[in-house]
């Protein structure tokens, strides 16, 4: 058990950032991480290749977050009621946090950009996590960046 805890602790930053991108409430995040660990513990035999442990855990976490939304009966994953949308006039780009900077994007776009830029996953790894084609991930990154440029007009090229 110490080993499992150690593995989770070593990637806790990644897990926290991804969960935070999807769920705002800290208590809910802790519940979800517990469920993720339990799921990993009971389904370990399904992991075919040890080197995929990290992407496998993250996929479980993302699924748990999605199940959480269904359980709470929220309208959509883009439900922004809990997310603080900041108008562009208030933004100081030198101090803004990443999650606020991309808060206006869709949930999927926020997840992909978090994995890619904040946590340095490759497009291949992101494709494995989200079970999409790598080309699709590249396109979504490109489209999200276009949206950011439109949103923060005149700030970025």
């Amino acid at each position: 058990m110490r080993h499992l805890l150690g593995l989770f602790l070593s990637i806790q930053k990644d897990l926290y950032c991804i969960a935070k991108m999807k769920i705002n409430n800290e208590n809910d995040i802790e519940d979800i991480i517990q469920e993720t660990m339990l799921s990993a513990y009971t389904n370990l035999k399904k992991l075919k290749n040890n080197s995929f442990f990290k992407t496998w855990i993250i996929r479980i976490l993302i699924n748990k977050c999605n199940q959480f939304y269904k359980k709470k009966n929220l309208k959509s994953l883009d439900d922004k009621q809990e997310i603080n949308i900041i108008s562009t006039k208030e933004i100081d780009l030198s101090t803004i946090e990443f999650e606020n900077f991309i808060s206006f994007l869709t949930e999927e776009e926020r997840t992909i950009l978090t994995l890619y830029y904040s946590l340095s996953y490759t497009t291949k790894e992101i494709a494995q996590i989200l079970k999409k084609r790598e080309g699709t991930i590249c396109s979504k990154i490109s489209r999200a960046k276009t949206k950011i440029k439109e949103k923060y007009k005149g700030e970025f090229y």
Partner: peptide, 12 residues
């Protein structure tokens, strides 16, 4: 800290 403790205190 509560997140880290959640992981540390996990016990199946």
């Amino acid at each position: 800290h509560s997140f880290t403790n959640t992981i540390k205190n996990f016990s199946p």
